[in-house]
């Protein structure tokens, strides 16, 4: 337990970097969206149209960028620093997993609260939308909580995995990863060309018609794969 706390301390000791930077990102997002709202008003946009159109605003995805960064750092800079201090791989993975959950949960709560405020004030009184969008899940607060949590978790575990591959096999590993991704893409594209058009559309509409809960299942699956790979790679990591 003490050691897990030590690991969390490694992640959170730089308070400025850990807490201020996400707040800056959030503040910048809000500022940009509000600016867009003001410009749209000045330009004479219809308020109701604006509110409806901004349902598709994807600015909230910027939060994932933070998740990518955290995931990557966990398996690179921070890992070799922690091992150097005498933290074992297992302690590092356990502590970092706790950190992932804390960050994802924290982000989810913040987004949920902001979404509720946004809904209650009809877009902060400016008819803009940032948090109450299709990307943060359907209307209920718990769905937003779960969706944002899973999205951020998946972002962190996946990038931690990719960084873990780099740690283990270096550039060669990343090249193999890219090669596999490209190969899969080519195969999918090939199948798409070979199949009759209505079947291809069928695949898309199958995805399009997936229920929210099934999407969450997919997201959770991705997160789990990332988490397992993160542990497997991390438990064999050497300092670099």
């Amino acid at each position: 337990m003490q050691r897990i706390k030590n690991v969390l301390n490694v992640h959170f000791v730089d308070r400025k970097g850990t807490f201020l930077v996400p707040i800056y990102i959030l503040a910048a997002m809000v500022a940009i969206v509000i600016a867009i709202g003001i410009i749209a008003r000045v330009a004479g946009a219809n308020e109701a149209d604006l509110y409806e159109g901004m349902k598709w605003n994807g600015a909230v995805w910027a939060l994932l960028g933070m998740g990518f960064g955290i995931g990557a750092m966990t398996m690179t800079q921070y890992l070799s620093f922690a091992l150097g201090l005498g933290i074992t791989r297992r302690e590092w993975l356990a502590g970092s997993s706790v950190m992932f959950v804390l960050v994802a949960a924290g982000t989810a709560v913040i987004v949920m609260v902001l979404k509720l405020i946004e809904q209650a004030t009809t877009g902060f009184g400016l008819s803009v939308r940032l948090f109450d969008t299709v990307h943060t899940g359907p209307a209920s607060w718990w769905q937003t909580l779960l969706q944002v949590f899973l999205m951020v978790m998946a972002a962190m575990t996946l990038t931690a995995t990719i960084s873990g591959i780099w740690n283990r096999w270096g550039k060669t590993g990343l090249m193999w990863l890219a090669a596999i991704a490209i190969a899969l893409g080519v195969v999918a594209f090939g199948i798409g060309i070979l199949l009759p058009a209505d079947q291809v559309m069928g695949v898309f509409s199958w995805f399009g018609n997936l229920a929210w809960i099934s999407w969450m299942g997919l997201l959770a699956g991705v997160m789990l794969i990332g988490a397992v790979a993160f542990w497997l790679l991390g438990s064999k990591a050497e300092v670099r």
Binding site: K5, N6, N9, V10, V13, D14, K16, G17, M73, Q77, Y78, S80, F81, G84, L85, G86, I87
Partner: peptide
Amino acid sequence: FIQEGQTYPDGFEPRHVISIAAGM
């Protein structure tokens, strides 16, 4: 273990390292 050429995470300051080491 005090390593030669120990790398530190970006943004770290000496007080951060000392505080982590103190806890360990």
